[in-house]
């Protein structure tokens, strides 16, 4: 059964330390309010998976010392520059990095979604990425008459998918529209926890125009309302990123001390989002 939580804090209390947790990139559904609550709680040793990359939420979790391992095709904060806390953590060797490439991460999740052990993927051969990936295997295409190498990517089954979406209904169905990577994430994960912007008046599955972009409550374990829950990153179709605030983050997160000040101000004693 899908549980509705009154508070985002209670929703994220369902994420144990050391969880393998799938997160979406900045242009998709970023549960920033939930990330702040996770940091506030002091979650540790997370294995985060960028699907297929992560932005500010990954950088913040890393800066706050919540991450042991990051598995991703990239950590990017777009126009703002290099992700400061990620870059520093790699330099200081404080996190493990499992470098991947976007389609391999999608394929791993698709394998888990289908309940199969692996998925073949084109490309990759000859890249240094595969030298460091014990969960990727070079095999031969069994349907090809001539010898043709292919990479097999092991299924990726996250413990938890944590996302922020524009709409949810009282039945626990959540709407992601065309950002269907979140649907694959939910299908592939053992549990999915969601924050949502607005409550949809009615049942998303009975509206023909909404149902195709809806993840049914079957896959959703917990929900909590979080208005402006993707701030300062934007939410597709709802609001753009708060560029001024992201610049403040970039400026403060340049150093460890500055980042600590940032989380003191915005995570531990949060100011209301403007």
């Amino acid at each position: 059964m899908t549980k509705h939580f009154e508070k985002v804090e209670t929703l994220v209390s369902n994420i144990p330390d050391s969880s393998k947790i799938a997160l979406a990139p900045d242009y998709s559904g970023c549960p920033m309010e939930a990330i702040r609550k996770l940091i506030k709680r002091g979650v540790t040793s997370l294995h985060i998976i960028g699907v297929p990359s992560v932005g500010f939420q990954g950088d913040m979790l890393i800066g706050a010392g919540c991450v042991k391992t990051i598995e991703t095709a990239a950590v990017t904060i777009g126009e703002h520059g290099l992700a400061p806390r990620f870059t520093s953590a790699i330099k200081n060797g404080t996190i493990n990095i499992i470098d991947g490439t976007c389609p391999a991460i999608h394929a791993g999740l698709q394998a888990a979604q289908k309940g199969i052990p692996f998925m073949p993927v084109r490309g990759i051969i000859g890249s240094d990425l595969s030298k460091h990936r014990l969960d990727w295997i070079e095999a031969s295409n069994p349907f090809s008459e001539s010898e043709e190498p292919l990479i097999l990517v092991k299924a990726i089954t996250p413990d938890i998918t944590l996302i922020h979406v524009p709409l949810a209904d009282s039945n626990g169905n959540v709407w992601v529209g065309v950002r269907r990577e979140m649907m694959v994430m939910a299908h592939a994960s053992k549990k999915t926890l969601v924050t949502y912007e607005k409550l949809f008046d009615g049942n998303l599955l009975s509206e023909e125009s909404m149902a195709p972009g809806t993840i049914p409550s079957l896959y959703i374990d917990g929900l909590a309302l979080a208005e402006n829950g993707a701030w300062p990153v934007g939410l597709f179709g709802n609001y753009p990123p708060d560029e001024n605030h992201l610049e403040i983050y970039m400026d403060m997160a340049k150093t460890d001390e500055g980042f600590k000040e940032y989380i003191n101000e915005y995570v531990f004693e949060p100011k209301a989002a403007e």
Partner: peptide, 20 residues
Amino acid sequence: YPDTKVRFPGSFGSAYLYYL
């Protein structure tokens, strides 16, 4: 690698799209 002196964002989809 993996003890890079300077770290860039990551490979994104390059290890796929460059081939295809």
